[in-house]
Structure formats: C-alpha cells, structure tokens
Design a protein around this nucleic acid. Structure first.
Lengths: 412, 412
DNA sequence: GAGTTACGTCAATGTCTGTAACAAATTAGC
DNA sequence: GCTAATTTGTTACAGACATTGACGTAACTC
C-alpha cells in the first residue's frame, strides 16, 4: 500500500564507514531543527529522529560549538519538571548570496540559516552583458560586506538567469537580454568565488517552496517575466530535467497552427501571454517594454503599465489579459496533465496581474486536466512575487548547508 | 561546477545504526553486481564500492548463502595468477510477477533477478471488470506455479492498468475499459497476496528503462494504446507526479480551439493521434476497434489493421497517420519543453506504426523544442513495444529486491 | 521537600578498517 | 615435470568509532 519508488540509480553509491554514520545522524538531526516550526528541545529531537538522548546530546553539542544553532530561552512544556531548552537556527554564521538578472533590474540578496532575508538591493541593468555582470559582481561584494557586518559568512552564491544554463555556469540563450553563450559563472568567479548559475524560473519556485515550507510540496510556479518559465517542484525537490533545461513553458503550443513566434514555431504560449504582447494590445501603450529601471527599488515597468491601463478602463488590454489567462490555462493544463501537480502559483509579473488572469487559468485547468473533476487544481498568486528568484537563489545557496551541515562544521 | 541538487525533503529520514551500516554496504555491493554487464569478481567489487576485500568477502558470503548470487566459472583476467571467480545474479530465488490489462488482452509475466522474462502468457479480456480481474488472478496463480516449478519465488506483484491509480490499488478512471473506481488491488489480493497497481504508461517506461540499462537514463516513452499515455524517466527513476497521475499526454491540447474530445475539452491530442481516430479515417475500415482478442498471443488488432490498410495503399489512413505524427510531435514538444528529456520512445501500438509517425514527430520537435537547435531530441521505436507494460510491471516488482536485498535475506 | 521532567556521563557492545599472514589456483621458467 | 612467481581470496587481530542503556545530576512545580 506504500507508494512505490522505482529507480535504476542506486540509493547511495558510496560506501558507509563508521564516520559517515556520525555525519548522517548529525545531518538528520540538523534537518529536524531546520524543519521545526518553533524552537525544539533535545527530547523532541530524540523522538523525531529515533536516536537516543545521549546521541542527541553529543550532536547538539557539536552543532552549538559550530555556531549553527543557539539555545533559546527555556520553554514551558505545560507540565512540571525541568523546562525544555529550545534549540533554533543561529541568526549568524553561514549565509547564502543570491543574484538575479532580469530585464528591468539586477538584484542581490543575502539570506541567513533561518531563511530570513537580511539584505536585498536592486540596481538598473546596463545593456551590455559584461557591464551587467561587472555590476552584479560589485553588488555581490557589497552584499558580502553587509553580511560580514552582521556576523554572516557567505558560503555560496547562486545567480538566477533568464534562460537555459549549462554546467551551472554558461547561459546558453537568454533572448530577453540578447545573450547567447555567456559564461556568467566565469565572469563572476574572480570577484565572488564559486558561483552556481541556474534558471530563474526554477529558482523562483524554490524561493516559494522554502518560503511556504512545509505547506507546499508539489506545485508549479509560472514566472511571468518576458520569457514565460515554469519552476516545477515535486515532493519538495526541484525538477531539473535531463540537462537542467526544464520549464520552458513559453514555447508550449497553445494552438499548433497559430501565429508565428520569434522562436520559429507557431502558436506558442509566449505569443498569447507574453508581457510584451499584452502591453502591445492597447494603442494607448507607448511603453518601451523592457527599458532598464533607474530607481533603487524593483520596478516591474510593464506589469505596472498594464495595471495602470486596466485601471483606467482600457478594454483592449483587458481583452488581452483575458486571452493571456486562457492561453496560460491551456499550457498549464498540458503541464499538469503531464506531470501532475496540485497547485499552480502565478509568479513574477503575473503575481501582480493575477486577479485578471486567474479566472481564465482556472477555467481551462478544470476543463482540460483529466483528474480535475475529482481533484481540482488550486491556482493562486505566488507570495514572493517578482523577488522570488533572487530570494530563491540565495536560499538555494544556503540550503546546501541546511541539508549537509557537516560541510560548514568541517571548515569552522 | 557540480550539478546542484535541491530539496526540502531530507536525504534519508531514518536514523542510522551500526546495524544499518552493514545493510547499506551489503545493498551497495549487491547493486554493483546487478549493474555489472558481466560476472564480476570480489576484487572488482572492492574497487567499485570502495570497501576492503575482507568486508567484500563477508558480504559475498552472505549473498551466496541467501541464494541471491552464484559463482560463475573462473574467468581469465589476462594475467597469470589465481583466476577471478565471477559473481552473477542467481537465476533462481526471488522473482517478480507482472500483470497487464489492455483493451485487447490480459497478460502475465514472470521475471527473475537477472531481468530475464521466464514466463509470459496472454488471454482474451472478458468485458466485465470482475470477470477480467478473476481471470487475471487465475493467470497470476498459474504464473506463480510455473515460477515455482523453476525454483522461483514470486516476491511481489504489480498490475498495470490503463488509467490513473490511487493508493496503488484503486483504478480511478479507465475509459477504454469502461472502469471507474475499481479497486483492482483488493480484488486480486485474496488470490495473489500483496499487489501494487500502477499506471501502464509509467510501467512501460520502466520496462524500457530496465531493458535498455544502462543505455537510457532520461527519456519519455509514449504508450500508444487507446489512451495515449507517457511514462517519463529522469535520472533512471520514474516521474510519478504529486499523486502518481503524471503522463496523461492524450489530453494535452494540440489546438486549443480544435474539435471537441470525449473528455469535454477541445483539441486534445487523443483526437488527432488516437488509434480509433486513425482507423476511423478510412471508409474501408470496418474494424470493431477494440474487440477482445481471442487467441493466446498478443493481438494488437487496431495497429495491425492500420498496418494492413496502409500497406494496401489506403491514402486516407496514410493522411491520418501523417496528422497523428504531427500532433504527437506538438504534444511531445510541450512535454520536452516542460521537462527536458533527450529521447522519445514510441511505445505500445505506436512502436508498430513508428515508421509512419517518426518523421512528423521529429519535425515538430525540432521546430518547437527551444533547446533542439543545439541539443536535438532523439526519436525511436521502443524496443519492447506493446509488451513493455507487463514486463515493466514484473521488473518493478523484482526491482524492490534488487534495490534492497536485505528484505529477501531477512525472510530466507 | 517530594515528585517530575530534562539533560549529561560512562562503560559495554557491535561494526568496519587496516595490516597482517596464510591458503588456493594458475602461469612462467628451468 | 617441478619450482617459483603472481594474483585472488580468506582468516585473524588490534584499533577506531558511534550507538546503546543504565545511572547520575540539574532544574522546576506543587
């Protein structure tokens, strides 16, 4: 009756020594602390992990010495007796650095072990790739300095890029930036050390995942920037695909014999639900559609412009939004039919336009998803919205420590 | 530079004791023997696993005593000295039982540890669900008896069903069989013991995976029976989706405003590429399209009928096949854009019609998949074809022992 | 002060590792 | 044909390490 698990790949392909045993149990205990909604005591940890108290004592000592956790004020367990000492993640120590390059802005973000955003900065994007990367490197160094001032050490950096990435370093193709085969990882490494480059849609989904944890475990997060991407999370882990290029939702066909798309195919979702297309629907819109922001706050110029148009009663834009919602629903139906997730988050710019899109999306999902009649798909705006990618990037960097605290303890 | 892995779910959520250490290393060693293309010696195992020779000796003794492996004839290693003793999987001992219920036939299959098909039987499908399940139970018992006669013990049974399954037991919805909420697992359990019920498309993909191992690790296998399903394998493990309902390719929209489908939506792939639709294209076809087979061999009546029509120069059918290939290509492009696999296998009935479909599928994939220009998708017929689901079901049953030999050793 | 709960400490147990030395089976050379 | 060298596999024993289980200590309520 248990859910079957199939794989040809071995569960773990390394031999286990007594030493790894210790590391495993330490990691297991630490993950319990990470996942706990409130400070957790040693006794509770022993129950949760199945380890004995003495072992927990030893492991907790090690984590305390390494600065990964702190003892909180003794908490009442209701009964009499010695009160439990709460353990929670340290607000200092390791931190993750996230960088994001969007059409309209660059951003940098530092997140600590607890998942709290400790630093978040934005800047305009210089048009040239080299300039943008240089600016990002500066922002990264500034963020690291700001982190150091708060007793945080950046242990990993992730860059979110709007396109498929190879070897966690080279951006193969990012039409909205005009990039092709840009080795962003190599460009940033001299200034920032090891950098992992990843697709922004996936990182945005991770951001929403961590921010919502443990509420959401299976969902897709549609990042409506200029490129429509989907980050798919199954059982709390990001679906990356064979080569890490999953989630190209923008070029799923909505109508196979529809109008031609810039990619060469016909009837792509991008044509119906792209921001540029929605904006272009109204003759009133003279928006530059993608000009760099100049302020030090995140500006989603196109989404804001659309919002303004609709609020002022522009019927053409309203109709375009209706079309976009329907098309998005068709493409998402394909996605849900193919991979079966139960929740759809409208992220990125779409989170700002959700109220106009959600109806069309839900209608198509209910019509087209085979299992929707007895297990409806939930659609809602993504809580983190346009900042999900930077935050997700930072979280994905710090998450390596959260999943394997031994790496931090070894170097401390 | 290593590929990032993200998850909120813990790597392993159980504590590790000294005892589990032994079990882990035994399992690790056994998987090496499973994965080895030829009999492997103790020395080679020591190198492959990273364990020491004495440890390997002890583990191998245990596996030999448990009857999971056998010593083969000493093999030449080229050099002088004592020849290596090859170790390979035992052809006796545990076996997996697979059952499949198709429109046109029932089948049962026994596979041993080595992955060899030791028994394969077919029968006509009685129209009523209860009768079909009773017949399957008989076939299962006969297969178990046949297995026992060859010193095989069935350790697990899997049933492949043409529709979404809940709790590994209840078939929610199988339109081609006229089933709705049939608890197939419960029906078979009295006769066969514990039975796992699973979607046929996924099991077919597993069949192709195990049969091809280690060649394929990331692919989708389209099962063209009456319902078009897709089994998706990523990194050697089956993508199941949040509730195990992934792979409903048949109801992906090819043309959002296309003709109405039986499911209530419009423009579904099923309408363009379903066997019934292809057959229906020709006025010459008076085929009953789905009548039960009566012979004791697998009869794919519709596929054979199509084949006959085309061979006799029926242009309407040829045109229908062309449309089907194109539509399939559109839907598969959506799938590949969304989850990024590098290989498409045309399975089930499509494997028999592959030569007429493959051109259209490849054309659309090359046009529509964003990454196809620098990383083309390979399309080919599935080697196991229509029998992949039964074989995959049996393999998935025996695979539990292959992944964790301790379960077998504990009971032997 | 008694009772209760939380936490720390210590010897005992069991597992793997490493380093041996040893036995077995074959080839190479005289 | 016999001996030496070579490679493979087994056995033995000390050492290291982590968990366990039992016992002892700390802190708080009634």
């Amino acid at each position: 009756m248990t859910r079957p698990v199939h794989r040809v790949a071995p569960a773990t392909d390394t031999p286990v020594r007594q030493e790894s045993l210790r590391a495993h149990n330490l990691s297991l205990t630490f993950r319990q602390i990470v996942g706990a909604p409130a400070p957790i005591s040693r006794i509770e940890l022993a129950v949760a992990t199945g380890l004995t108290r003495p072992t927990i004592t030893r492991i907790v000592d090690e984590l305390l010495a390494g600065g990964l956790i702190v003892e909180a004020a003794p908490s009442r367990s209701g009964n009499s007796g010695r009160p439990r000492v709460g353990l929670s993640l340290a607000p200092t120590g390791p931190a993750g650095l996230g960088l994001d390059i969007r059409v309209d802005a660059l951003s940098a973000c530092v997140v600590d072990l607890t998942g709290t955003v400790r630093h978040l900065a934005f800047a305009a994007r210089p048009p040239a790739a080299a300039d943008a990367l240089a600016r990002l490197a500066e922002m990264g160094r500034a963020a690291m300095a700001a982190a150091a001032a708060e007793d945080l050490t950046v242990v990993g950096t992730t860059l979110a890029a709007p396109g498929p990435v190879e070897n966690a370093s080279v951006v193969r193709f990012a039409p909205v930036l005009g990039w092709r085969d840009v080795d962003a990882g190599a460009a940033l490494r001299p200034a920032l050390g090891e950098v992992t480059v990843d697709h922004d849609a996936g990182l945005a989904a991770l951001g929403e995942l961590y921010a919502s944890a443990p509420a959401l475990r299976n969902f897709v997060c549609v990042s409506g920037e200029f490129d429509i991407g989907a980050g798919i999370v199954l059982e709390g882990s990001l679906l990356r695909g064979a080569r890490g290029w999953s989630g190209s939702l923008g070029h799923v066909a909505v109508t196979a014999d529809g109008p031609e798309c810039a990619c060469g195919a016909t009837g792509c979702l991008q044509h119906y639900a792209g921001l540029q297309q929605i904006l272009g629907a109204s003759p009133a819109s003279a928006a530059p559609a993608g000009g760099p922001a100049t302020a030090s706050v995140p500006v989603l110029a196109p989404a804001v412009a659309i919002d303004t148009l609709v609020s002022s009663g522009d019927t053409a834009t309203l109709a375009a939004l209706e079309r976009a919602g329907t098309a998005l629903g068709v493409a998402l139906s394909a996605l849900v039919n193919i991979i079966d997730v139960d929740t759809v988050l409208l992220g990125g710019s779409y989170s700002l336009l959700a109220s106009w899109l959600i109806e069309g999306v839900e209608r198509e999902l209910n019509r087209r998803v085979l299992t929707a009649s007895w297990a409806p798909v939930s659609v809602r705006p993504a809580p983190l919205g346009p900042d999900a990618a930077v935050i997700g990037a930072a979280l994905s960097a710090i998450d390596r420590v959260r999943q394997d605290p031994n790496s931090w303890l070894a170097r401390a």
